[in-house]
Amino acid sequence: MSEAEHSEDAHAHDGHEHNYIRIWGILVVLLIISVVGPFIGEYTEIQAITLVTAFGIAAYKAYLVVKNFMHMTAEKAFVSYIVVTCLVFMFLLYAGTAPDVMKSEGSGWEKPLWQQQEAEYAARQAALAHGGEDGHGDDHH
């Protein structure tokens, strides 16, 4: 394709003198925090720490990559609309699907193995709780 277009494209980013290596450094630090987070979460028994360091940091890392490496915010606005629209549709899919999939039985159906597995898991948790180790595991409720 043409030289003219390329230089025009380059022009769009001239204003932003990105320090890519600095961004990479931040990403690596965030990665370390997200790996260490669960240990702190387990030690202090505060689940929220694990969740925040895992998913909050993932979201922020993704934001950094999208903004600084992909330059999405510097592009035309429609690029953000494309990406955001696709994400919104995925939340829609989740919202419409999860109420059914997350149930172990509904009108006229059930998932026997699922119920059995969850019952066994609950029993193990209860046994663990009786042993005095309250609140261990099960980060996902």
Binding site: L93, G96, T97, D100, W109, W114
Partner: peptide, 17 residues
């Protein structure tokens, strides 16, 4: 496969979405 803890309705959702 519901017998093995899967969910056939998930396919229906993915398909009709």
């Amino acid at each position: 496969d519901p017998d093995r803890a899967g969910d056939p309705i998930l396919w229906q959702h993915l398909f009709w979405f």
